[in-house]
Design a protein around this nucleic acid. Sequence first.
DNA 1: CTAGAGCGCTCG
DNA 2: GTACGAGCGCTCTAGC
Length: 936
Amino acid sequence: MTDSNFGKGCHLHLIDGSAFIFRAYHALPPLTRKSDGLPVGAVAGFCNMLQRYVDGDHGADAPTHLAVIFDAKGDNFRHKLFPDYKANREEMPEDLRPQIPLTRAATEAFNIPSIELEGFEADDIIATLTCRARQAGGRVTIVSSDKDLMQLVGGGVEMMDPMKNIRIDRDGVIKKFGVPPEKVVDVQALAGDSIDNIPGAPGIGIKTAALLINEWGDLETLLDHAEEIRQPKRRQTLIEKRDQIELSKKLVQLDCKMPLDVSLDDLELREPDPDKLLAFLAEMEFRTLSRRIAEKLGVEPPVIPEKAPDPAGDAPAPDDQPFDSANYECVRDAQALQRWIDLIQFRGWVAVDTETTSLDEMRADLVGISLAVEPGSACYIPLGHKDGATDDLFGSDALAEGQMDKAQALGMLKPVLEDDSILKIGQNMKYDAKILARHGIDVAPIDDTMLLSYAMHAGLHGHGMDTLSERYLNHTPIPIKPLLGSGKSAITFDKVKIEDAVAYAAEDADITLRLWRVFKPQLHRARVTTVYETLERPLVPVLARMEMDGIKVDRDTLGRMSNGLSQKMAALESEIHELAGEEFNVGSPKQLGEILFDKMGIEGGKRGKTGAYATGADVLEDLAAEGNELAARVLDWRQLAKLKSTYTDALQDHINPETGRVHTSYVIAGANTGRLASTDPNLQNIPVRTEEGRRIRKAFVAEPGNKIVSLDYSQIELRILAHIADIPALKQAFADGLDIHAMTASEMFDVPLDQMTPEIRRRAKAINFGVIYGISAFGLSRNLRIPRSEAQEFIDRYFERFPGIRAYMDDTVAFAKEHGFVRTLFGRRINTPEIAARGPRAGFARRAAINAPIQGTAADVIRRAMIRMPDAIAGLPAKMLLQVHDELLFEVAEHAVDKTIEIARSVMENAPEPAVKLDVRLTVDAGVGDNWAEAH
DNA sequence: CTAGAGCGCTCG
DNA sequence: GTACGAGCGCTCTAGC
């Protein structure tokens, strides 16, 4: 490249594009394009800044040449030198991502050259152009606040900080770094940079670094004479960390000689083409800006149709297409698929849905994939539909005609589904991510309409697609029932005719995309963007991994237990029949009630809403205490029946034949408070409270050479209560490591701790839990089996001793009444629509509102720990397997047990930070064993 | 025959 | 009429 005309008298201005973008993003509210909700706030800010820069008064520093320099996506040569380079960088906000290409388009619309090159950072391009301009005798202004660029200043090169609007010359650099520009890299190599993750020399900051460089002249001399440093700490660091420091210098040193296919002459200042520029601004729907620019250019401003904002906020945008399944395309070959991929790449996002043969992701076969890019335009790619003509019981039907080869289609889709710059939108993405992961595809990044709804609407309604579609799109999705049938005669999706599948499957992707366009711009209005970004979205891959790993369950242990239980139950059953004087179904509460309260004539039987007698454990226990043998035996039988049916039998059916492990599924958007729920099977209610039940846990084992490790938060909800309600006595008790229930008992009943009895402690414990549950005299009296008046006295005394509790309860209910929701410490929103109800429902809503911030904050804490856990234990032979609300279960190679506990505990105990600093520290108890029973 | 309500029990 | 938050197996009934 020749820069033949560039020289003395020329002044090149180089704008650091990223700096402009980030400043624009943070300076403006999250604007979206009205017609389709595309986020454009950063683009708007970027255009404004460009326009102001070009038209600004630069005096003697006016540009003759101008370019905007961008960072290319992906890694550069520095990552090869140091894989962790910029590893501390926070991920780009999701609503900024799609705006990045638009800022390039904006630059072009302004007719300003934009330069980027894969494998290099913007800084290197700036360095190269700066060197060339300086050699040619011209001047340069670098528009950036990035201090890494200060090494280029001097010899006609200055920086211009667009934030503060000040110019920085050689003296400015000396002021900032304490050394002239040519020695800046030496200082940076020593001082390091936490933002870019440049290690530097530990303990040495910019001040010290400048001192050392000024003393020794340059870095190499300094390092060669490190032995002569007087301060022992400094000397040792410089000697020991020499490699790290030299690496740091390579990382901060900008490349002045990159191969750049641009000549300086190409960058000569030029006027924008009004048509092009205004067309772009109109496309972005920037009304004010296009009016201003049109005025300046002396042309008519473009007409941008005004779309009336939807007053309800929830209804579909009026310009959305009606649903019409005839518009959906069936993709049957590579050409057709490539067209969709092109569309997706152009758009930067796609709604994805997979169709399979089972709701169990670990057993499901992939049958097809649907994609949607814009409302009303979606496709279905059949991949595994069987020819339904033959009725083959062995499922060996041939594939139906007109389908792409599955491997070929997945091969084409993989780069898209894994592309950092393309957002994949799904409804319950964890399901699809697991299916695709089993085909070697790691879907990322993702958005999930179910989780968007959950973050905003928890407590208002469910978050299934049918519910959301009806509520927010006013559209009832095609039901799956007519396609699959039900019960015994139900078929799997692979047997559905492709023509029928297209309408159903493509519509799901279409609905998902439309929901996303409704929900995404509403996140910030509900003030749950951070909740969604830090507690919902990042949890998806973590749970997917845990669920796919599963936990090993020993079938023989369960089988033997089942047999043993059968025998004991049979014996009990005969006894029960004899006591009853007739044979009846012991498992039928209705029949049991009739025997007890009608036939045997026991007084005081209470009937439920169906008219049947209540025969719950509390009722039977009272009868048994009065000496009723039948009630006692039925209680025994029920315990065994529960263990057998729900656990020893059912669990065996959940052992995956291929993995030999049990793979639960966590419902992220199930519990209103933020808790997870475990299903198919539920592994969060495996028995533990009785010895008999605990034996089930022995069947949950580690692989040979491994251990099961359990870590659980100690009294997390009470600790959170102490913090939220601000109870000094409780906080102090936790700080002192006291037995919290005993301490409460002592305080309430004036019993010294050394004279505490189990009975008094039990009562205090019940009250402590009652407080978390939104205590009532009725509830406490029933739980402790004491008169209501006595329960009321306890509660009164509790409030007297801990007055903050009452204030917390009153304040929380008042907040819920005013706003219709409550929040956790981390901002999670739990809607409380029933708080305005009258009658018994009001009581329920009150107590739920009091409980939600406590339970929800605890749920947020463990979510944070789980999200951080994979990175924390990466490299250790350890897997996180299960979550049980306040407990995490791991499978760990024996030799790494101690290290894993140390790291995982630290992650869990520090999980609230830095977002929240609790007044009470969280403590985590650990257990290790060959099985879950031993570890707990 | 199937779906759904109700009951009861498991967990934190 | 009640302690908060969940899931699931069994029985029974209503409705196809």
